[in-house]
Simulated scan of single mutants.
Amino acid sequence: MFADLLRRLVAPEPEQLPDPDARLALTALLVRIARSDGDYAETEVDRIDRILARRYGLSPFEAAYLRGQAETLEEEAPDTVRFTRAIKDAVPYDDRSAVVEALWAVVLADGVRDDEEDALIRLVANLLGINDRDSALARQRVEAGIPTAR
């Protein structure tokens, strides 16, 4: 299952992913950002589950299951640059923009902004086609607790 998704993501011209695959790929990015500082904290896991439940209308069990699949995919996925560029080509802009906000929510979940997390979110946002200004605005919305439309 993951091999097929990864193969489609890194194809020379990836096609738009069906919703379940896009969910999985985008969730793997959330997991990658949470793991980037070497401390995959329970608060980050909880935040990912809540993001998934709200964003996709999942039960807590379904959100945890999707996160578990994404943890496996994240381990098998290529380097962040190739993985994120592939997602950019296969996922609509609105979904990518909302993911940057979700990434900030995960980074800020444990109350600590590590240099590794900041560097990775800046790289990922850029590779997803989200500029620094929009990423900063997303971070500010998360810090202020302002809910998004998604």
Score class of each variant (00 low, 15 high):
Gly145Cys: 14
Asp21Trp: 13
Ala98Ile: 05
Asp134Pro: 09
Arg122His: 07
Ala63Leu: 12
Gly57Arg: 14
Ala125Trp: 15
Thr80Pro: 11
Leu123Tyr: 03
Leu29Ile: 07
Thr148Tyr: 09
Leu120Glu: 15
Ala53Met: 03
Glu116Ile: 04
Arg133Phe: 14
Leu9Asn: 12
Ala119Ser: 15
Arg50His: 11
Tyr93Trp: 10
Asp115Lys: 06
Arg82Leu: 14
Leu137Ala: 05
Ala98Gln: 13
Glu76Val: 02
Met1Lys: 07
Leu73Trp: 00
Leu29Phe: 12
Gln69Glu: 14
Ile121Thr: 10
Leu73Met: 11
Asp132Cys: 05
Leu108Lys: 05
Lys88Gln: 10
Leu24His: 09
Ala109Trp: 01
Val106Phe: 01
Leu52Cys: 01
Glu75Arg: 11
Asp118Leu: 11
Asp37Glu: 03
Glu44Leu: 08
Asp95Phe: 00
Asp118Ser: 13
Val81Asp: 00
Thr43Lys: 03
Asp21Glu: 15
Ser97Met: 10
Val112Ser: 07
Arg32Gln: 12
Gly57Phe: 11
Arg35Lys: 12
Ala90Gly: 05
Tyr65Asp: 01
Val31Arg: 00
Ala3Ile: 13
Arg8Thr: 06
Arg7Lys: 12
Glu71His: 05
Arg7Ile: 07
Glu116Val: 01
Ile51Thr: 12
Pro92Phe: 01
Leu52Thr: 06
Asn126Lys: 13
Arg150Cys: 03
Asp115Thr: 12
Leu58Ser: 05
Ile33Thr: 11
Glu74Lys: 02
Glu62Lys: 05
Tyr93Phe: 13
Ser135Glu: 08
Ala109Leu: 06
Leu5His: 06
Pro92Asp: 04
Arg47Asn: 03
Asp114Ser: 10
Gln69Ile: 03
Ala125Tyr: 15
Asp79Met: 01
Leu123Gln: 15
Leu128Trp: 11
Glu75Trp: 13
Gly68Leu: 00
Arg96Pro: 15
Thr27Leu: 07
Ala138Tyr: 13
Leu58Met: 14
Leu137Tyr: 13
Val31Leu: 02
Pro147Val: 00
Asp132Lys: 09
Arg32Ser: 02
Gln16Arg: 13
Ile121Trp: 05
Pro12Glu: 00
Lys88Asn: 12
Arg141Val: 08
Asp134Thr: 08
Gly111Glu: 13
Ile146Met: 02
Leu137Ile: 10
Ala77Leu: 15
Val81His: 04
